[in-house]
Design a protein around this nucleic acid. Structure first.
Length: 595
RNA sequence: GCCACCGUAGCUCAGGGGUAGAGCAACUGUUUCGUAAACAGUAGGUCAUGAGUUCAAUUCUCAUCGGUGGCUCCA
């Protein structure tokens, strides 16, 4: 999908203007009973938020779309006007959200009275019967919109100003493109994404299930699903070992007090499973590893600066009490296996450790063919959730920035995305459909090591507090598996495929020879199965194809006689008759090529 | 958690105030087949759960649970 034109000025105007037209259409449907909020252009489209006397459903969308097309056909100019605050307030006297926005503009202007532009005027954009408080820019005339490139997509709830304390408004999402062709392409992408949905593919390929008897957000993995999990985790474990990380194990439950000390309790109590109480001690299911790893660091005795860095990695199952509405397939679960790591180091080692983690992340992501990713430097804003210790934050931010700068990697900053204890470098990968997923993260933490009383003996003989880098590569195995399923649409590369090869006998006479082949392949650690069902060969091929098994070895009398196999790949290619040796060569070549 | 929608066989779905149907899958039998679905038969559902309305509820209403699209949140 080409999303490069998202920031394009012309698309911005087009989408923004179409949002206004939708607002007009909805306003006309609910004349006198509607409160309009905001309606910006977004990636691939636009939305507008309303407060309405009744709930909208998808059935309302065709009617709104029809009205929009009628408005577009009217060839109305978009007219910009500038009015003072008072006029604006009069115009929107009955629009409480607009009045709130006008107030904000006014307050903002008063705060900046030293500006030469302290008139605190606001701008309106009008077309046909509709006027909106809006700084623009817009297209000149509705005739610039191709009604055949327009489609309303869905209705959703959205809090006013994105704050869950505020009223829930009704949002309509729509998409608009320059040409019907572009629209079709975008709708195709949405369809394709649906086909690739890991929940759908997970069921089709028999990888995992959810059961209401187990509970929401608690996936069950089949032998095939667990095979993939195991491969993924072993891969990261091996690579971590190669990079000098040591694996530890810190169990599943922890005394609640530890999370009070670390600060997690104050920030995340609502997202922890309720406490287990043993007389006067409260335990919690472990929602994160950092306090456990830091405690382990402490228990291992005095540390010298010579011992640092110490890198603790763990594949621990964490339990997070995500709110019911936040759960989604494998990408948001309540039990997750994090490939977590905490690096204890001196301030001087931050840069080097960051680079090491970065290299590791880059190696792993490219293994999964995530080559298109960006790095977000996630900083705090003035929200109260961040630990108040300006000196430590400044040091941490400076350290992270200079570590990033030293690597030549492109990154952009975003405030309000930091963890409560420190800034983060988040890796946001784009999959083959152009969708973005936050996967890896590297975080700099000067706060928790101090709170939990970690120390090391420095060169100067004094005690110092180590810096902790938090780092995850794939994030959680569950979430990453979900993303990987969608990335490959279920056609896993050979190294990840739960079944790599299936032997398909043509008749029952060939079964014995199949067993022989099976044993040969199995002894080479190839994940192989025999389809010994009473289906016809064609049906077996189809079944294997649907299961996206990389190689089918079709075996009949001919193959049996000359000790060979007929190799078919899931792409549909008939690779031809090969000796087992030849097939193993093909197979291993693919594997070593990274497939 | 909030707004909206949805929940019928393992899966995909049809139906609809008078206690249910298809395809695929499963099972049994026949078939032993040459690169994407052999044929026949059998079995399988308190129509998510609970309550209410009704002579009668799977269908209507409410609640609960679960899911979906968003919002919020994501250590």
């Amino acid at each position: 999908m080409n999303t490069s034109n998202t920031n394009n000025e012309q698309m911005y105007r087009l989408r923004h203007s179409t949002a206004h037209i939708m607002a007009q259409a909805v306003t006309e449907m609910f004349a006198g009973e509607i409160q309009i909020a905001i309606g910006p252009p977004i990636e691939n489209g636009f939305y507008y938020d309303f407060e309405l006397p009744r709930s909208l459903t998808d059935d309302d969308l065709p009617e709104i779309e029809k009205r929009m097309k009628k408005i577009i056909a009217g060839n109305h100019d978009f007219v910009r006007t500038e009015v003072d605050i008072l006029q604006a307030q009069t115009q929107f006297a009955k629009q409480k959200y607009k009045l709130e926005l006008i107030d904000d503009i006014q307050n903002n202007a008063e705060m900046h009275t030293d500006n030469d532009n302290n008139q605190s005027n606001v701008t309106f954009f009008s077309h046909d019967t509709f006027t909106d408080l809006c700084k623009g820019p817009h297209i000149d005339n509705t005739k610039e919109i191709n009604p055949k490139a327009l489609k309303l997509l869905s209705v959703a709830g959205a809090y006013w100003r994105g704050d869950s304390k505020n009223t829930m408004l009704q949002r309509i999402y729509g998409t608009i493109w320059n040409t019907p062709k572009e629209l079709r392409k975008y709708l195709w992408t949405l369809e394709e994404a649906k086909k690739r949905d890991h929940r759908k593919i997970g069921t089709e390929l028999g990888l995992f299930y959810f059961s209401s008897d187990i509970g929401p957000g608690l996936p069950l993995f089949t032998p095939k699903g667990e095979t993939i999990r195991n491969i993924m985790e072993s891969y990261v474990r091996d690579i971590q070992t190669k990079y000098g990380y040591k694996h530890v194990w810190t169990g599943h439950i922890v005394k609640e007090d530890l999370y009070k000390k670390s600060g997690h309790y104050d920030n995340y109590e609502d997202s922890m499973f309720p406490a287990m109480i043993d007389s006067n001690i409260k335990f919690r299911l472990k929602p994160m590893n950092c306090p456990s790893h830091m405690t382990l660091y402490k228990e291992m005795g005095k540390h010298s600066y010579r011992d640092l860095p110490i890198r603790f990695a763990e594949f621990a199952t964490l339990y997070r009490y995500e709110k019911s509405g936040e759960l989604t397939g494998l990408t948001r679960v309540r039990s997750l296996t994090q490939d977590d790591c905490h690096i204890f180091c001196t301030p001087n080692q931050i840069q080097e450790e960051f680079t090491l983690a970065l290299n590791l992340i880059q190696e792993v992501l490219s293994r999964y063919q995530f080559t298109d990713y960006k790095v977000r430097l996630s900083l705090r804003d003035d929200d109260g959730k961040y630990v108040k210790d300006d000196a430590k934050w400044k040091t941490a931010e400076k350290a992270l920035k200079s570590a990033l700068d030293s690597t030549n990697i492109d990154y952009y900053s975003e405030t309000g995305e930091a963890a409560f204890y420190g800034p983060k470098a988040d890796f946001i990968a784009r999959d083959v459909l152009g969708r973005e997923w936050q996967l890896s993260t590297i975080q700099v933490d000067f706060i928790q090591p101090d709170r939990l009383g970690l120390t090391y003996h420095g060169e100067d003989g004094e005690e110092h507090t180590p810096v902790v880098l938090h780092r995850a590569v794939t994030g959680s195995t569950e979430r990453f598996l979900g993303v990987v399923i969608e990335q490959y649409a279920g056609s896993f590369p050979l190294w990840l495929s739960p079944v790599q090869t299936i032997i398909i006998p043509i008749t029952d006479r060939n079964l014995k020879y199949c067993d022989h082949l099976y044993n040969q392949l199995n002894s080479q650690n190839i994940r192989v199965e025999i389809d010994s069902s009473s289906e016809r060969m064609n049906a077996k091929i189809r079944k294997a194809q649907v299961q996206k098994i990389p190689y089918m070895l079709i075996v009949g009398d001919k193959e049996e006689q000359n000790n060979s196999v007929s190799v078919r790949s899931r792409s549909g290619d008939n690779i031809g008759t090969k000796s087992l040796e030849e097939f193993l060569n093909i197979f291993n070549e693919k594997l070593s090529a990274g497939d």
